[in-house]
Design a protein around this nucleic acid. Structure first.
Lengths: 154, 154
DNA sequence: TATTGTTATACTCTATAACTATA
DNA sequence: TATAGTTATAGAGTATAACAATA
């Protein structure tokens, strides 16, 4: 188990890493904010899925997911298909235009990261990726608890 | 130099780590949003400083810094002292109340991180902290360029 | 009655631009 | 004329709550 000082330092570094996230966000196309990029990436990685599942992967409330999805659907990057098994639900699927945009995003990330991480070895990046994945995993489904309380029946 | 796939994966993990940051943000006291916590932490770590320097450390525009500082000053956690060397400038200094709050924040981070990172070794955390610091460093001062253009003289 | 998803509203964070006061 | 900092305004992200449609 790590020390208190280490945990404080970790909290600090996580706060500071926001600058890197913002910088990577700035290289995106003007009509594709980071939230949209996240949706497209997850659909590409995990295949078609329903809103609820996407909200889980994004680790945000479904209302937030709904807004992000509305944006990418509006741009033709994702389509919302009816779910034959449950008519309340909708299946989200990447369109060819969405895949094309993802290619563009990958190039942009590549450009920025090769520029900033010139002296990083393959192992350095691999190690960081592994630790970040492990950290994310350690927090599991950490979305705020939805208020499931049915209005007091009487 | 790392591969394109690794860089894509890094971009993904950085996006996903937002969930961890949000979760850590949720454990803060209601009157202390993450932006305020960041200001207090930096003043604690680096000692008193001017607005411009703080903006640099936060890696955000000075207008953003100004808002955050107004909040912590409003709560009595930081004081803005006149700078004897330059009357345009103000020196920011942590107050005793600010130091006290930082103690509370450290406990909260400690609680949450010990809970989530139970099976992490000292080395695991140390390694992650080191790599995050190096990543942040690789991006240097990545704030958006201020528009310094003097209105076209003619 | 519970669940899936949407919409309305509010709050935080960030950026741009215009402004004040010094230098 | 340039710099330090503030304020006004706008856009993106997220959370809560109320709602509609379906299970």
């Amino acid at each position: 188990m790590a020390s208190r000082e280490q945990f404080e330092e970790l909290a600090r570094q996580l706060s500071a890493i926001g600058a890197v996230k913002r910088e990577l966000g700035r290289i995106l196309p003007a009509n594709c904010p980071p939230g949209s990029a996240a949706v497209l990436t997850l659909l590409d990685r995990n295949g078609e899925m329903r809103m609820g599942r996407l909200a889980e992967l994004l680790a945000v409330d479904m209302s937030v997911t709904s807004r992000h999805v509305a944006h990418v659907v509006g741009h033709g990057w994702v389509e919302r298909c009816p779910d034959p098994d449950d008519r309340r639900s909708r299946i989200l699927r990447l369109t060819p235009a969405g895949s094309e945009l993802l290619e563009d995003l990958a190039s942009r990330y590549m450009d920025s990261l090769t520029h900033h991480l010139q002296d990083w070895s393959d192992d350095d990046v691999g190690h960081l990726v592994t630790l970040l994945a492990r950290l994310r995993d350690a927090f599991g489904d950490c979305r705020p608890a939805r208020c499931t309380t049915t209005r007091t029946p009487a």
